[in-house]
Design a protein around this nucleic acid. Structure first.
Length: 133
DNA sequence: GCCAACGTTGGC
DNA sequence: GCCAACGTTGGC
């Protein structure tokens, strides 16, 4: 099973909304690297839900429930989306600052490429982040 | 609000 | 195919 991190601006689509809706299609990605990461996702993979911009913290864990399929809102036909469902809220969000303070996470895609909205997370990084209190 | 880091577009 | 100009994202 692989791990991922997906960003959303709280003012656009907050974690609380995903909790209400129980499931959503991760549409709107228009970046090849992010799109390729979604293509690599398998059913059952887990992903952090990260609030970008005004909050900058991982607030929940999601599960991929449907693999990549074309995004109907993309007229070029190049970009797609996956379906996700919330699995667990973090009682204590893990902030970007906290992640930066973990030396072993210096190489995380999240830190190296701040504009990438869908990135891969290694097993080590996943476990380290979840062990933060 | 600013700006660095990217990504995209279009002229040549 | 190069690269300048422009647009966007997201951290600060």
């Amino acid at each position: 099973m692989a791990y991922w991190l997906m960003k959303s601006e709280p003012s656009v689509y907050p974690w609380s909304r995903l909790l209400e809706e129980k499931r959503t299609a991760w549409s709107g990605v228009r970046n090849y690297q992010a799109n390729n990461n979604m293509k690599a996702m398998k059913k059952g993979d887990q992903a952090f839900f990260y609030h970008s911009n005004e909050e900058r913290a991982i607030v929940g864990i999601m599960q991929i429930v449907k693999t990549w399929y074309p995004d109907p809102s993309d007229e070029t036909g190049r970009f797609g989306m996956v379906d996700v469902r919330p699995q667990k809220s973090l009682t204590q969000p893990v902030t970007l600052t906290a992640i930066k303070n973990i030396a072993a996470l210096k190489e995380m895609e999240l830190l190296r490429q701040s504009r990438l909205s869908v990135s891969a997370v290694t097993d080590e990084a996943w476990n380290l982040i979840l062990s933060q209190k």
